[in-house]
């Protein structure tokens, strides 16, 4: 039981991280490899807000959300928009976002040093529950709830709102969207902002959950995030959630039954099987992508 919950909670972290990834991919067909850096940066900024700024965590989270959104705008503006019409935009976008991530991490090291940090004790109530004999912390429940809420909220936004329609139009065909009066640049920028804001929140929650924040924390989860968006289906929001949970459970299963040293092989094995059997991912659409 504990392991099942462990799997679900790890999985919800993966999902939270992957949702931001998949959102940008769904709209732009581009992987934003600066996403992990946003994840780390926001955790550090969040810690500073709580530690030095004296904000409570609940007050810090919205600030971090905005911080992430601003970072997202910067990433879009600096690393992606200039490449828009280039034939090699795919490669170039990967590289430019890697470069930007490198700069971001370097700045973090300058500001905060290379040591690990953590949220000061007590910044989040360390309430614990016992569920069927298993230990569950409040943070974990919050993370799961946030992932679910974000997934539902985003899906609603994408399918029902004007902005969401714009996103889908851009995802479908940017040229046609432009002709139809969608401000493609703005929709793209907003997508990046939302994606990075989600990454930022994920970073903070992650750091609280494991009681540590490190410069490399984004890089450590990046590969899993990539696996999740493939497994769930590129661009599919519910897919990211399900993919994340599936990966979390598979890893826990591997720990229990195969051996802890093979956990990462299991994760990529899952990825491989999915790619071979159902390349569009579990919930990926065949032709028309969801956002």
């Amino acid at each position: 039981m504990q392991q099942l919950l462990n799997g679900i909670f790890i999985g919800s972290i993966y999902a939270l991280f992957a949702i931001g990834f998949t959102l940008v991919f769904g709209i732009l067909d581009r992987l934003n490899l600066a996403h992990p850096a946003v994840f780390a940066a926001s955790a550090f900024v969040g810690i500073e807000l709580v530690e030095r700024g004296g904000l409570s965590l609940w007050a810090a989270l919205p600030v971090v959300f905005v911080f992430g959104a601003v970072l997202g705008l910067v990433i879009e503006r600096v690393a992606f928009r200039p490449l828009k019409n280039r034939a090699d935009a795919h490669f170039a976008g990967l590289i430019s976002s890697i470069a930007l991530a490198g700069m971001l991490i370097a700045v973090l090291q300058w500001r905060y040093g290379p040591d690990t940090r953590r949220f000061p004790p007590g910044s989040f109530p360390d309430t614990r529950f016992e569920v069927f004999g298993a230990q569950v912390t409040l943070v974990q429940v919050v993370i799961l709830a946030v992932s679910l809420a974000l997934m539902v909220g985003l899906t609603y936004m994408v399918t029902r709102t004007r902005l969401g329609r714009g996103m889908r139009a851009v995802a479908e065909n940017p040229t046609a969207a432009r002709v139809l009066g969608v401000n493609v640049d703005r929709v793209t920028a907003v997508t990046f902002a939302i994606s990075s804001a989600l990454g930022a929140v994920a970073g903070v929650l992650f750091a609280i959950n494991v009681n540590t924040a490190q410069l490399g924390m984004g890089a450590a989860i990046e590969l899993k995030g990539l696996a999740v968006i493939i497994v769930g289906g590129m661009g599919s929001l519910p897919g990211a959630l399900i993919g994340g949970l599936l990966l979390g459970l598979a890893e826990v299963f591997a720990v229990q039954h195969i051996g802890s040293s093979w956990v990462n092989v299991i994760a990529f094995g899952l990825l491989f099987v999915i790619l071979l059997l159902r390349p569009q991912g579990l919930l990926g659409a065949r032709k028309v992508r969801e956002v």
Partner: peptide, 22 residues
Amino acid sequence: AGWIRPFLASLLLLVVILFLPG
């Protein structure tokens, strides 16, 4: 030696990618 080096290296990389398409 320190953070400034990776920062500059990344910046340079970004510049090359953005301004030298090929």
